[in-house]
Design a protein around this nucleic acid. Structure first.
Length: 570
RNA sequence: CGGGGUGUAGCUCAGGUGGCAGAGCGUUGGCUUUGGGAGCCAAAGGUCGCAGGUUCAAGUCCUGCCACCCCGACCA
């Protein structure tokens, strides 16, 4: 490709609206162009990268026995009503009507459609197992799109679905996908962690996320440097604390005016936060009050609350509701003299505490030296505590590390969540009708492009790994008005194409510095500079990853380069 | 959905107290230059986010709306 004729436009200025390195560099490097919030166009070089990522994924999916389909973007509303998700999915669903008033949505994921497809052809155990996938654009009306391709409202995803007779067989499909995913991320050169993930309200059997560690991720990932365990922070179990050895002191009421936060209370009384018991009041379905007691230095993880309450329909009580229910204010809520309607849960962190500070629903007062058994009864211990750095690993007990992670892949054993309501049934060998056991497996393709850039860049630009680079080689002619340089560069360009090296030939009438800067920004793994040294029969090879420059003989340069590229791709 | 910020040339931005719409980069034409985003000369390029209001006069002040970015909440 001759750059002078190629639709590729980089920018000298940093884009104003981009924070994350991947967002900034993809915009500046002219790979993507924003259309609206979370909606991006890909330019020709952007598409080249996308296709390469897709090809890696496609190859590994095919290898693991999956068959490619192409489902539709436009999904009829009826299918979504069959599973109840038309309403459950909420405002994240882009919906529209056709001229006759029929309802559709733009597919945010395709369980309904794939289940509909499979149920119309599969009716016997002889047709199972089955593994189908597609690479398709998805639409989600995200509350907050951000960081370029990292979280878009329109994005490309690979989604696969497995169909099995029973859970055991489905587990094999699941393991098969797990291995495929490990191969895929290895080939994309993205380092990922496989973490245990939430099975969510649907009640799946097993779920894992493949995350890459970056500050621009949305997930908190807990991982153990000692044993290698990794989990999404919201699923990492925290056990009960050690019982403290202390003599109980007499219970005392103390006036604590205006101490409506743990910090204020802690400094007012001169008591550390881990000796305070904090009460948090939630309303389930907007009406049922539920109180969680947790140690003062910890915070409630609402994903864990969701798991305890088995619903996502809950929220913190408002000031007015706290007053109406308990005749107190926030900061002075406690587990004493509660109306019978209030359900009480104790977080594991409150186990074994002695001589604690705790509120008793009287504004501006706290108890000090309260003790379990004597002053309050603890029943119903649960784990709703947000995991923090240093908490014990659930596998080996060593201190955990916490980092932010970007979810690139998610594999999920669904069970019969879709097959049952949608009547995707098959007959087993005994002739009984049974629901198909399903799994689903996603990879955010667009997001992977960002993840690669996050992992491979410097202050000058992107450093594409060869397997996903838009071009493997950037051929630069320093001075095209020098006939000898031009002749050598033209010849090398033709030869590179014959050798099967994906080459962009920077034949633009620009200054050398301009071309070098673009080369750094656009991130080609290799650059061949045709300049002054042609007089000595040499061209210069520059390696973007290692930063090395080597002079090569004109005649053997491409052979040498071909070897390097093949090595990178293997 | 709550909080904060921004909106002026293709891009990055400047335009106290209201008074002729600006710069750098990019673009076009010309000359020079050729190993790290070149130099000189000339030119084109604007619904100052949109609508309304105050005023002799609004990019600037007021009201409403919209878009985009960031933080939080949310997140198969």
């Amino acid at each position: 490709m001759r750059w002078s004729r190629y639709f590729w436009h980089t920018s000298k200025e940093d884009p104003a609206d981009a924070e994350a390195p991947s967002h900034r560099l993809l915009l500046k490097g002219g790979f993507i162009k924003q259309v609206s919030a979370g909606v991006y166009e890909l330019t020709p070089p952007g598409v080249r990268v996308l296709r390469k990522v897709e090809q890696v994924v496609r190859k590994e999916m095919d290898r693991s026995g999956a068959q490619e389909v192409l489902l539709t973007v436009l999904n009829p509303g009826e299918l979504w009503k069959e599973t109840g998700r038309w309403d459950l999915y909420g405002r994240e669903l882009f919906t529209l009507k056709d001229r006759n008033g029929r309802e559709y949505c733009l597919g945010p994921t395709h369980e309904e459609e794939i289940t509909d497809l499979v149920r119309s052809y599969v009716s016997s155990y002889r047709q199972l197992p089955l593994l189908l996938y597609q690479i398709q654009v998805k639409f989600r009306d995200e509350k907050r799109p951000r960081f370029g391709l990292i979280r878009g409202r329109e994005f490309i995803m690979k989604d696969a679905y497995s169909f099995d007779q029973d859970e055991l067989s489905a587990l094999l499909s699941y393991e098969n996908m797990k291995f495929a995913y490990e191969r895929i991320f290895k080939k994309l050169r993205i380092s990922t962690l496989m973490v245990e993930a939430s099975v969510g309200a649907i009640g799946g059997v097993s779920s894992h996320e493949f995350v890459t560690l970056t500050p621009y991720g949305e997930a908190r990932v807990a991982h153990c440097p000692n044993c290698g365990y990794a989990g999404n922070a919201e699923v990492v179990k925290l056990p009960r604390a050690q019982e403290r050895e202390e003599e109980p002191k007499p219970l005392t009421e103390v006036e604590t005016p205006g101490t409506d936060t743990i910090e204020k209370l802690s400094s007012f009384l001169g008591v550390s936060a881990d000796r305070i018991v904090k009460a948090v009041l939630y309303l389930v379905e907007g009406t049922e009050p539920v109180m969680f007691l947790i140690r003062g230095d910890r915070t409630v993880d609402e994903s864990k609350v969701e798991a305890v309450l088995k619903t996502e329909n809950f929220r913190l009580a408002e000031d007015r509701e706290v007053w109406e229910l308990l005749r107190t204010r926030k900061g002075f809520i406690g587990p004493f003299n509660l109306p019978p309607s209030v359900k009480l849960y104790w977080d594991n962190s409150t186990y074994g505490l002695k001589n604690v500070v705790i509120a008793f629903n009287r504004p501006d007062y706290h108890y000090i030296n309260a003790n379990p058994g004597r002053d309050y009864q603890q029943e119903r211990f649960v784990d709703v505590c947000q995991v923090e750095e240093g908490d014990p690993c659930p596998k080996c007990g060593a201190p955990l590390k916490i980092d932010r992670g970007l979810e690139l892949g998610h594999i999920f054993l669904l069970g019969t969540r879709y097959s049952e309501p949608m009547k995707a049934l098959y007959r087993d060998p005994e002739g009984r009708e049974r629901p198909i056991f399903m799994g689903c497996y996603g990879i955010g393709i667009s997001r992977c492009i960002s993840a690669v850039v996050e992992q491979y860049h410097d202050e000058k630009g992107i450093k594409w790994p060869t397997p996903v680079a838009p071009f493997e080689l950037d051929l630069i002619c320093v001075n095209p008005t020098d006939p000898q340089q031009k002749e050598v560069a033209d010849r090398l360009y033709l030869l590179a194409q014959q050798t099967g090296i994906e080459t962009i030939y920077d034949d633009r009438d620009e200054s050398p510095g301009f071309k070098f800067a673009d080369a750094d920004l656009c991130g080609f793994p290799y650059r061949l500079v045709v300049g002054k040294k042609v007089k000595e029969g040499k061209v210069e090879l520059q390696d973007r990853h290692r930063g090395e420059r080597t002079d090569l003989d004109i005649d053997t340069a491409l052979e040498h380069l071909k070897t390097l590229i093949e090595k990178d791709k293997s």
